[in-house]
Computed example of a mutant assay.
Amino acid sequence: MVHHNERTDLDRLRQIIEGRRSVRHYRADSVPEDLIARVLDMALWAPSGWGRQGCSFVVVQGSVRKSLQELFCDALGEVRPILENIYPREKGYVDKLMDFFSTYGSAPVLVLAYAGRLPNGEDDVLTAAVALQNFFLAAHAAGLGSTWTDVMRVREEEINSIVDVRNQKLVCIAPLGYPDEQPKPAPRGKGRVSWIGF
């Protein structure tokens, strides 16, 4: 039996999940550090493989953000063929993505997510991905926008040098800021859940 308050909580969570969008255009307004910290705290409450809590985040703005963007712009020639391979019949969309990567949507903050290690020594990318889902939902609930990006990992070694990270796998570079757009939701695919024994 579902009690009224439980139904309300579930409805609110559904509203947050369905309201989240991949945002690629941001206002120039700075994001308060304490708000970013609250969002990341919720990300760190995500479940983790083997309970190891190994993933970590690096939050960047200011001059280091500018240095990363200069690196990203230098990498655009490597990025376009990758995107064209992923979207071979969607040149217009590739052009939009290239425009986004040239500034990262003017987001004032970048959040870099890094994987921890599993007991067998492999990179625990899945735990970072789970934490990022919490991050994206918490950001949306806080009135912020973000999106998953990973194509700039073509310059991972240089990125890690700029942010002084060693011996960790870069999983995602997520812009963070106040949205300057309201993207429409993509329709959800049907038939992706199988029920057995019901």
Results as ranks from 00 to 15, higher is better:
residue 134 N to W: 00
residue 40 L to I: 14
residue 122 E to D: 15
residue 91 K to N: 14
residue 131 A to N: 04
residue 123 D to W: 15
residue 198 F to D: 09
residue 89 R to I: 04
residue 95 D to W: 02
residue 149 T to Q: 08
residue 69 Q to F: 06
residue 75 A to M: 14
residue 160 N to K: 12
residue 103 T to G: 02
residue 113 A to E: 01
residue 143 G to W: 12
residue 152 M to A: 03
residue 135 F to D: 00
residue 16 I to D: 01
residue 100 F to H: 08
residue 11 D to I: 11
residue 85 N to D: 10
residue 48 S to V: 07
residue 111 V to D: 08
residue 55 C to L: 05
residue 111 V to K: 07
residue 169 K to H: 15
residue 120 N to S: 10
residue 87 Y to M: 15
residue 71 L to E: 10
residue 183 P to L: 12
residue 31 V to P: 01
residue 145 G to V: 06
residue 165 V to Y: 03
residue 169 K to L: 09
residue 115 A to R: 04
residue 29 D to H: 01
residue 196 I to V: 15
residue 13 L to D: 00
residue 56 S to V: 03
residue 121 G to T: 05
residue 151 V to M: 10
residue 149 T to H: 07
residue 87 Y to W: 15
residue 7 R to Q: 14
residue 53 Q to F: 04
residue 64 V to R: 11
residue 95 D to V: 09
residue 191 G to W: 09
residue 87 Y to L: 15
residue 59 V to H: 03
residue 198 F to H: 06
residue 92 G to R: 06
residue 158 E to S: 13
residue 90 E to C: 08
residue 37 A to Q: 13
residue 104 Y to N: 01
residue 189 G to P: 02
residue 195 W to N: 11
residue 35 L to C: 08
residue 157 E to K: 15
residue 51 G to A: 10
residue 96 K to Q: 15
residue 160 N to W: 00
residue 77 G to V: 11
residue 111 V to E: 05
residue 176 L to K: 02
residue 152 M to H: 09
residue 10 L to M: 15
residue 19 G to K: 08
residue 43 A to K: 01
residue 41 D to L: 00
residue 168 Q to K: 15
residue 92 G to Y: 07
residue 96 K to A: 13
residue 55 C to W: 10
residue 66 K to E: 12
residue 98 M to T: 09
residue 130 V to M: 14
residue 21 R to M: 07
residue 197 G to Q: 05
residue 126 L to R: 11
residue 37 A to P: 01
residue 149 T to Y: 10
residue 173 I to V: 15
residue 2 V to Q: 06
residue 4 H to V: 10
residue 156 E to A: 12
residue 117 R to D: 01
residue 162 I to C: 07
residue 153 R to T: 12
residue 178 Y to Q: 01
